[in-house]
């Protein structure tokens, strides 16, 4: 086995989910390499050694400055072919998914996604993937190499192995395709507004598209205030401009683990679930009895949140006074 881990970075830091995948890879393979692609990123390679990478490939090029997928596909395809890596692992993200999809096509390789575990079984690599709204677990494999995998973020924790790592750093000179450089970043990672942090809250009341209109967030805010909690939102309503980005829970937002999470008008798609499934107790209020969120709520209420939430707020206020 020869494993390559794609190490994503932001703000001059390697990202935790990538380091988690790197740590996991070192339990499956003795010779794990990492790859860092960017501009001015050479210093990041050392960090990867602390998490068990024997070797880190670095492509430090202006074409790789913006976090766009296609030049990264070029760099990885060349590296995987030259060094004959048989396994390439990614911690899933907006960027990593696009890189992995493009690389699969370029190499004619198999890509399995949304994996929550990787194991060696009778000499072959097997990925575990929850499917159909996590109602069934599928063991997925690859016919041959290179084997590409996207791991659900937060699945593996980074495990530091060496304080003073002896990591071998190799520079790459990728060749870029014209079409890979066609897309350009006009404005990058602009957070549109700042809100209260939801990561430390013990109680979170979250609102989704089922609220029906942005002004109905006041129901959520009042309940949160009564409970002494914070307000969170789903990606759909944040993208629609109903609520600030800083409050977003889910795959492209924050991961939260309060003692109590009350979901109002949230259907509970998998992208939301991955951001809040660590909550102590989950209460869901939704008018659709088939909403996926009921499958992982401790208490599910099928009903109109316009009735239930104000009443609940009032009852909580009465108890507290």
């Amino acid at each position: 086995m020869s494993t390559l881990v794609f190490l994503e970075h932001h703000g001059n830091e390697l990202l935790k989910p990538s380091l988690g995948v790197l740590s996991k890879a070192t339990t499956l393979d003795q010779d794990v390499s990492g790859v860092v692609l960017g501009s001015g990123v050479r210093g990041l390679a050392e960090q990867a050694g602390k998490f068990g990478a024997a070797r880190v490939f670095v492509a430090d090029r202006p074409e790789l400055e913006a976090p766009l997928p296609q030049p990264r596909v070029d760099a990885l395809a060349g590296l995987v072919r030259d060094r004959e890596f048989d396994t390439v692992l990614f911690a899933s993200s907006v960027l990593a998914a696009d890189v992995a999809g493009g690389l699969a096509a370029r190499l004619g390789a198999g890509l399995n996604w949304d994996l929550t575990d990787l194991v060696q079984q009778n000499g072959s690599l097997i990925g575990k993937r929850p499917a159909l709204g996590d109602t069934v677990y599928v063991d997925v494999g690859w016919k041959d190499g290179p084997r590409l995998a996207l791991i659900r973020p937060g699945t593996f924790d980074p495990q530091g192995v060496a304080e003073t790592p002896s990591v071998e750093i190799e520079d790459l000179e990728p060749q870029f395709e014209d079409f890979s450089l066609a897309a350009t970043m006009v404005e990058q990672a602009h957070a549109e507004s700042e809100g209260p942090s939801i990561e430390d809250a013990d109680v979170i009341v979250a609102g989704g598209r089922g609220l029906g209109a942005p002004e109905n967030f006041k129901l959520v805010e009042e309940l949160a205030q009564a409970l002494g909690g914070a307000v969170a939102a789903t990606r759909a309503v944040v993208d629609a401009g109903w609520y600030p980005y800083a409050t977003q829970v889910g795959q492209t937002g924050k991961s939260v683990s309060p003692k109590l999470y009350i979901a109002c008008g949230i259907s509970g798609a998998i992208q939301h679930k991955v951001g809040m499934q660590g909550s102590g107790l989950i209460v869901a209020i939704n008018k659709d009895p088939n909403a996926p969120i009921f499958e992982y709520s401790d208490l599910g209420v099928v009903g109109d949140l316009n009735d239930v939430v104000p009443k609940l707020t009032e009852l909580v206020r009465q108890r507290k006074s």
Partner: peptide, 30 residues
């Protein structure tokens, strides 16, 4: 190039309670 090897049940979770709002859901949540 990918294959599905096996299917299995998801790991068991804690009990979930689901109720329909008959006007008393808020009391039940409290």
């Amino acid at each position: 190039k990918t294959v599905v090897q096996a299917l299995s049940d998801p790991p068991p979770r804690g009990d979930t309670v689901k109720i329909e709002d008959d006007g008393s859901a808020a009391e039940k949540i409290v």
